[in-house]
């Protein structure tokens, strides 16, 4: 029997369901209930549907991950604006951290970070973040 996606709440069930098992004309919903003014609602308050890619993850694409060091950050937001994958979390004009579920490890945020030493650096995926912070490089002298 063809199914209507609206009836499905469990993401696992959708993964099992082929596109040809859907009701013709079925729409993939972004949210489980109408959100009238999405631009006014921060991500953490949105009722994401299991069919919104936000609920999925691509973190396992990474070989290296960006690690964030608050000590040097000047909250310039370069990393936020140039991250292609909505993976830099900023609230109230402050950089908070990396969304590891969605970060693909491209390294752009590290490249554009202007501080010395950088406030974001790439480390091997398997390394503990505390360990990475402990080996943070010192300020580089201008030659």
């Amino acid at each position: 029997m063809a199914k209507d996606l609206k009836e499905i709440k469990d993401i696992e069930e959708i993964k099992e369901l082929g596109w040809d098992e859907l009701l013709p004309g079925a729409a993939l919903f972004s949210f489980t209930e109408p959100v009238e003014d999405v631009a006014e609602v921060p991500m953490e308050e949105r009722p994401y549907a299991p069919t919104n890619s936000h609920e999925w993850q691509v973190g396992d694409w990474r070989v290296e991950k960006p690690v964030y060091n608050r000590d040097y950050c000047i909250d310039c937001q370069f990393c936020w604006v140039f991250c292609p994958d909505m993976s830099i979390l900023s609230r109230d004009k402050k950089m908070i951290g990396v969304v590891y579920e969605h970060c693909k490890g491209c390294g752009i945020c590290v490249e554009v970070c202007p501080t010395n030493p950088k406030s974001l650096l790439m480390f091997p995926e398997h390394m503990d973040n505390q360990e990475a912070l402990a080996m943070w490089p010192k300020k580089e002298e201008k030659k």
Binding site: H54, E55, W56, P84, D85, E101, H102, G105, C106, I108
Partner: peptide, 9 residues
């Protein structure tokens, strides 16, 4: 939203 399948970068 994130977790789309565009290439890294």
């Amino acid at each position: 939203e994130g977790a789309n399948l565009m290439c890294p970068g």
